[in-house]
Amino acid sequence: KMTIRVKGKELARRIAKEMKDRNLKVEIHEHGDEVILEIE
């Protein structure tokens, strides 16, 4: 399990899509400006 902190929703969406393309499970937690992606 891996956690990534990202500034900006646009970048977070791009990373999430990339991870889904690799068949990984992604959970997205938004905290205002910061987005936390949990990847399994």
Rank of each mutant, 00 (worst) to 15 (best):
K1L: 08
M2K: 08
M2I: 14
T3V: 14
T3I: 15
T3F: 15
T3W: 14
T3Q: 08
T3Y: 15
I4A: 01
R5D: 01
R5I: 13
R5P: 02
R5G: 02
R5H: 08
V6H: 02
V6S: 02
K7S: 07
G8H: 09
K9G: 06
K9M: 15
K9Y: 11
E10V: 08
E10P: 04
E10R: 12
E10M: 11
E10L: 11
E10G: 08
L11F: 06
L11P: 02
L11I: 09
L11R: 08
A12E: 00
A12L: 03
A12K: 01
A12V: 02
R13Y: 15
R14Y: 05
R14T: 05
R14L: 10
R14V: 07
R14N: 04
I15V: 05
I15D: 00
I15K: 02
I15H: 00
I15E: 00
A16S: 04
A16W: 10
A16N: 01
A16F: 10
A16L: 12
K17R: 11
E18V: 14
E18C: 15
E18H: 13
E18M: 15
M19R: 02
M19L: 14
M19P: 00
M19N: 01
M19V: 03
K20A: 12
K20R: 15
K20C: 13
K20P: 00
D21R: 15
D21E: 13
R22C: 14
R22Y: 06
N23T: 03
N23S: 07
L24W: 14
L24S: 02
K25V: 09
K25I: 10
K25R: 12
K25H: 11
V26W: 02
V26N: 00
V26T: 03
E27G: 06
E27Q: 12
I28T: 04
I28R: 03
I28S: 04
H29W: 13
H29D: 03
H29T: 12
H29K: 11
E30R: 07
E30H: 09
E30W: 13
E30I: 14
H31M: 13
H31I: 14
H31G: 05
H31E: 14
G32A: 06
G32W: 05
G32T: 04
G32E: 09
G32I: 04
D33A: 06
D33P: 04
D33G: 08
D33Q: 06
E34H: 12
E34T: 12
V35C: 08
V35W: 15
V35Y: 15
V35M: 11
I36A: 02
L37D: 01
L37W: 01
L37A: 00
L37R: 01
E38T: 14
E38R: 10
E38S: 11
I39R: 01
I39K: 00
I39V: 10
E40K: 10
